[in-house]
Each structure stands twice: as C-alpha cells, then as structure tokens.
Amino acid sequence: MGDTPMNEQEALARLRRGDIGGLEMLVRQYQVQALRVAYLITRDRHLAEDVVQEAFLRAYERIHQFDGTRPFGPWFFRLIANQALKAINARQREVHYDESEDGMVAIEELLPDPGPGPEDIVAQDEVRQQVWEALGRLSPAQRTAVVLRYYLEFSEEEIAKEMNCSRGTVKRHLHDARQRLRKWSRVLVKEG
C-alpha cells in the first residue's frame, strides 16, 4: 500500500478534529479503489456505493480508533471488505424477508448460470466474463478472500488477521476459490 502521503497525514489530523474537510481529502484519495473493491465483492454498483459511503462515514465517526502512525489505506480497505461482506449477508436476509411467503431463496439461485466455458481462452473479454461469472459462484467469504489476496495483494497472514480466522482457513478459502475458478472459467491460478 505504500508510504503514507503527506496530504493523508494532514487529512487525518483534520479528521481527528471533526473537520469534514479532512474527510473530503480522504474520499477524493480513496473513493475509486474503494468502490472497485466493494464492487468486486458485492457485484452490484449501487450496493457498492452504499458500502463505500457508509465506510467513509464510519471512518469519520471512529477515526479515534485508528492508529494514526499507520497508513489509512489498508485499514480502510479492510473496513470496505468487511462492510461489503455484511452488505451481501444483509441482502440475503432481505431476499429471504421479501420472499418469506415462498420460502427462503438461496443466493446461488439468483446468480447467473455460467454455462460451459470454452476449452481455450481466445479473447480477453471472454476471460473477463468467465472470471466475473466464476467469482459470482464463490461464497461471499471466498470472494472476499480472493479480492483481498489477488486485487489488493494482501498476504495470507494479513487476510487471516483481518478476517479473524486461521491462516489455514484462508488457504482453504483461496484453494477452493482457485479450484472453482478453474472449474467454472478454465482459468488456472497458480498456488502462490
């Protein structure tokens, strides 16, 4: 995630004073990547925007829980991943509530069927589409682990720490995810 930029320190100092100008600086700096992380996990643009807005508001309100000697980005992206995972779970409960007369609807039923994948990958668009669909077949926790590991480039130790589980659990999540990506998209991710 790199060193903490000077303007980030200034933003954090202002934020600690309750100054919304500090929050504005952080929003401008992190909103795009935060939104992309949230989108990859939630697979829904509007839900991702809600997640990111909420995460910035939480950062604003709880900035005194943040160790100001560390860079803001990793802490914030973990908050984003956490919020995105919660949002998916909330949506599952919401669907359950709305469909209560017909019984619970499994989230897998709502996801698109990936269909048979081509034997050979011939176009980047196809690869993207396959990966996108395969990601949709992963459980929210697996998808979060994949985004943290392969998009944000967190280490397995960091993911284990932030997902509050053992490194073995993370390895299993990632291994299962790789297997599923391979099965559903013909994409092979080498063991890291």
Binding site: Q31, R36, Q53, Q124, R128, V189
Partner: peptide
C-alpha cells in the same frame, strides 16, 4: 494464469464498471 494476470483481470472488470472520475463526496 499467474496472480498478476488475475489481478489485471479483476482490475479490468472493476474499472469497466467504476470509472476513475466517480465522485461520492
């Protein structure tokens, strides 16, 4: 596929939906 390739694909997917000029402020 190497991890970097997967990262690039994930970035492509996210960038297509989330443009760099998005403004949530």
């Amino acid at each position: 596929m190497k991890e970097q390739q997967l990262r690039r694909i994930l970035d492509d997917i996210a960038s297509q939906e989330i443009p760099a000029d998005v403004d949530l402020w």
